[in-house]
């Protein structure tokens, strides 16, 4: 019974921390953007403007929530949920830290270790396209619809490349369990180079990274909401909390994507010489969570950095990059990985 209580506490804690990161990210986004554009950024609310997200949240909650006259009310209302919920669920398979022994129970710092591991993550993230599509269609606005159609085409195209990149990683590590994948990356080569998958599969990592930007609708792939041509894209007709949920969903998807990239390619919560993968002490577990947080944070800052550095792709360039560059490259990578895996039988 007490192990069930511990599990419930673990799930609540992971979820609570996960929900606190988007406001922090919004603050970071505005500060980094200001730094890149040689401005100061938010600095009025609290010291260094640190309370700005709180002010934003109060503003968004108290704003009038307008539902336009000709929208399809049911789909218009549920669409933001379709963006936010999958982003939150997909985090469930990410291992966030080393095992820890508490009151005689060994606790895995991962909400669920499914038989299908990474495939579950891919399946759940593919659901978030519905939020954009339904929201766009239900808004009954031509700009919204354009945004929705663009996002549908974009997500389907890049999901293929992402899936193929993941298959290469699965083949070289021989497991779909994210937990085992992290353990497999915990040793070192030549005594100093960590055995991270990014060194086995550099091409798969680059493809996955580009596809991750496209899947989360971040610049340079934010065609669905291109402000200069589509007003606001799929969320043109949204206001108040419903708009905030779209916004939060985007940031939560970014967090999940960063966490999965760290787990797949950068050794998850392990760091040779700092975290002992097989120890179960509380101190070691805390250290591993910190390592995981720093790695994920680095990716999140990278996401923001790219957004304020690169211009947006044109739509035909986006499609060409997806179908004519990334997918052939991913297939080639898959082919060579397969040959390398079967080298003993072939040669």
């Amino acid at each position: 019974m007490s192990s069930m209580v511990l599990d419930a506490g673990k799930i609540l804690l992971i979820f609570a921390v996960f929900m606190q990161i988007p406001p922090l990210l919004i603050y970071l986004e505005r500060k980094i953007c200001a730094f890149i554009q040689d401005r100061i950024g938010p600095n009025r609310v609290g010291p260094f403007g640190i309370l700005q997200p709180l002010a934003d949240a109060i503003k968004l909650i108290t704003k009038e929530s307008i539902t336009p006259k000709n929208v399809d009310v049911f789909l218009y209302t549920v669409a933001p949920l379709f963006v936010m919920v999958p982003a939150a669920i997909s985090f469930a398979v990410v291992p966030v830290g080393a095992d820890v022994k508490l009151w005689g129970h060994t606790l895995q710092l991962q909400i669920a270790d499914f038989h299908v591991g990474i495939l579950f993550f891919l399946a759940i993230t593919s659901l978030s396209v519905y939020g954009l599509t339904f929201g766009a269609w239900a808004s009954n606005n031509k700009y919204s619809l354009y945004g929705g159609i663009r996002s549908t085409a974009q997500m389907i195209s890049y999901e293929v490349a992402m899936g193929l990149a993941v298959i290469c990683v699965l083949m070289s590590s021989g497991t779909v369990y994210l937990r085992e994948m992290v353990f497999a990356q915990s040793h070192t080569y030549f005594g100093f180079l960590p055995a991270w998958n990014v060194f086995h599969q550099p091409l798969a990592f680059v493809i996955f990274l580009i596809a991750a930007f496209a899947e989360t609708n971040r610049l340079p792939f934010d065609l669905p909401e291109a402000e200069s041509e589509l007003v606001g894209g799929y969320h043109t007709e949204y206001s108040g909390m419903k708009f905030a949920m779209f916004f939060m969903g985007e940031y939560m998807a970014m967090i999940s994507m960063s966490a999965i990239m760290v787990t797949l390619f950068f050794g998850g919560w392990t760091l040779p010489g700092v975290v002992d993968a097989h120890s179960t002490t509380v101190w070691n577990a805390l250290l591993s969570v910190v390592v995981f947080g720093i790695k994920t944070g680095a990716f999140l800052i990278f996401f923001i950095w790219i957004r304020w550095t690169l211009p947006r792709l044109r739509y035909d360039q986006l499609m060409k990059l997806g179908w004519k560059v990334l997918i052939p490259l991913a297939l080639m990578n898959l082919f060579f990985t397969a040959i390398w895996g079967l080298r003993d039988q072939i040669f």
């Binding site: 299908v116 495939l119 891919l122 399946a123 593919s126 396209v129 269609w137 389907i156």
Partner: peptide, 18 residues
């Protein structure tokens, strides 16, 4: 179960909606 989610919900119905 996961392929059901991935292929039918994640891809085929999206194409229908398209």
């Amino acid at each position: 179960a996961v392929t059901q989610l991935f292929i039918y919900i994640g891809a085929i119905i999206v194409l229908f909606l398209f």
